[in-house]
Amino acid sequence: MTITQLQYVLAVAEHKNFTLAAEKCFVTQPTLSMQIQKLEEELDVQIFDRSKKPIQLTDVGEQIVNQAKNIVSESGRIKDIVDQQKGYIGGDFKVGIIPTIMPTLLPMFMHNFIKKYPKVNLIIEERTTEEIIKMIKNGQLDAAIAATPLDEETIKEVVLYYEPFVAYVPESMPPFDKKELDVNDLSSNLNHLLLLQDGHCFRNNILNLCKAKSLDVDSHFQIESGSFETLVKLADEGLGMTLLPYLHTLDMNEKAMAKLRHFKSPRPSREVSLIYSKKELKLHIIEALRNTIAGVVKGAITFQDVEITSPLQAK
C-alpha cells in the first residue's frame, strides 16, 4: 500500500470517474486504474462498484476512503515539518473565498502576497460557505476566507476583521432622512428590503439581524439577486433599500455615497475569518496569508464597537 495509491483512490472517490481522476492526478488512466486494482487485490476487497454510472464506493470503500483522507493528510505534515525547518514558503496553496468577500478583499492583498511570497502558487476559488466547509474537510482546500462563526468542530477560525453593514437607501424611502439607522429601521421596512439570493451567507446575516427567517413579500414583486451591483441599481430605481458590506462601499462615487446610511453603535457587522482544518497542514503559508491580509485591512477596517450577526441560517 502506498500514499500514491491512496491519493488515486481519493481522486476517483471525488470525481466518480477514472479518466477525470487520472487527469487531475497527472497520470494516464491505465496507470491510475492499475494502481487502484493492485490496492484492491492487496486488501482483497472492491473499493469501487464499477457497474454503476457514475462509479460508486462500496460499503467497505466508504470506510477505506475516510481512513485514506487521514493518512494522506498526515503524510503531508512531513513535508510541512521540512519546509518550516528550512524556512521555505512555497508550493501550491488552494484558497476558497465566498462571493461577497472575493471582489473587495482579493484585490487588496493579492499583489502584496505574490510580491512577498513569489514561490507560493496561490490558487483562488470562489465558493459558497457550504462548499468551502465540505472542501476543507475533504482536503480539497488548504484554507478559506468566509464569514464566521461557523460552529464546525474540525475547522479552526482566525478572525481577520469585523465588517459593518451599511444601508443603501433611495431618496423615496423614509430611512433616507435619517443620519444613522438602527435595526428597527430594517424591521419596519422588510417588505422593501432587497437581498442576495438564497445560498449567500450575507443574506443569512441580514435575516438574522432582522430576526426574520424569511421576508414577508408584498403582492407586487419579489427580487433576489446574486450581486450587490444589481441590488444597488434596483435601489436607485426606487424599488427598495439594500444592505452592503462596508468594504463594498469604499469605491462608490459621490452620488451613490450620499445614499449610504451607517448604523448606530454597536454597529451590526459580520466577522470575516481565515479558516482551515484543525490538522493545520501548511500552517506556515496560512500564517503568511493571515499576516498579509491583516496588514492591508487594518487601515480600511478600524471599527471596534460592533455586534456580530451569525452567517448560519436561522432554524
Results as ranks from 00 to 15, higher is better:
residue 219 S to V: 10
residue 214 S to G: 04
residue 215 L to F: 02
residue 35 Q to R: 14
residue 307 E to K: 08
residue 84 Q to M: 15
residue 106 L to T: 10
residue 156 K to H: 15
residue 31 T to C: 03
residue 227 S to L: 06
residue 286 I to L: 10
residue 284 H to I: 00
residue 36 I to P: 00
residue 136 I to H: 02
residue 220 H to S: 09
residue 295 G to D: 14
residue 44 D to M: 13
residue 19 T to Q: 14
residue 248 H to F: 03
residue 207 L to I: 01
residue 125 E to V: 02
residue 78 I to D: 09
residue 225 S to M: 08
residue 230 T to V: 00
residue 36 I to E: 11
residue 301 I to K: 07
residue 262 H to D: 09
residue 18 F to I: 11
residue 17 N to F: 09
residue 300 A to M: 12
residue 145 I to R: 04
residue 281 L to N: 15
residue 222 Q to T: 05
residue 243 L to G: 00
residue 260 L to V: 05
residue 282 K to L: 11
residue 3 I to W: 12
residue 29 Q to E: 14
residue 13 A to L: 14
residue 131 E to V: 12
residue 61 G to Y: 03
residue 131 E to M: 12
residue 157 E to A: 13
residue 66 N to H: 15
residue 173 M to R: 00
residue 279 K to I: 03
residue 250 L to R: 03
residue 178 K to D: 10
residue 47 I to A: 12
residue 310 S to T: 04
residue 205 N to A: 00
residue 206 I to E: 07
residue 298 K to Q: 11
residue 3 I to E: 15
residue 153 E to D: 10
residue 261 R to M: 00
residue 119 K to G: 05
residue 87 G to H: 04
residue 40 E to N: 13
residue 68 A to L: 01
residue 23 E to F: 12
residue 111 H to S: 08
residue 188 S to L: 14
residue 281 L to M: 08
residue 166 V to A: 13
residue 137 K to V: 07
residue 252 M to G: 04
residue 158 V to R: 10
residue 132 I to L: 09
residue 214 S to L: 02
residue 244 L to P: 00
residue 271 E to D: 08
residue 25 C to N: 07
residue 180 E to D: 14
residue 150 L to M: 15
residue 221 F to C: 03
residue 48 F to Q: 06
residue 130 E to Y: 07
residue 9 V to S: 13
residue 267 R to D: 14
residue 54 P to G: 11
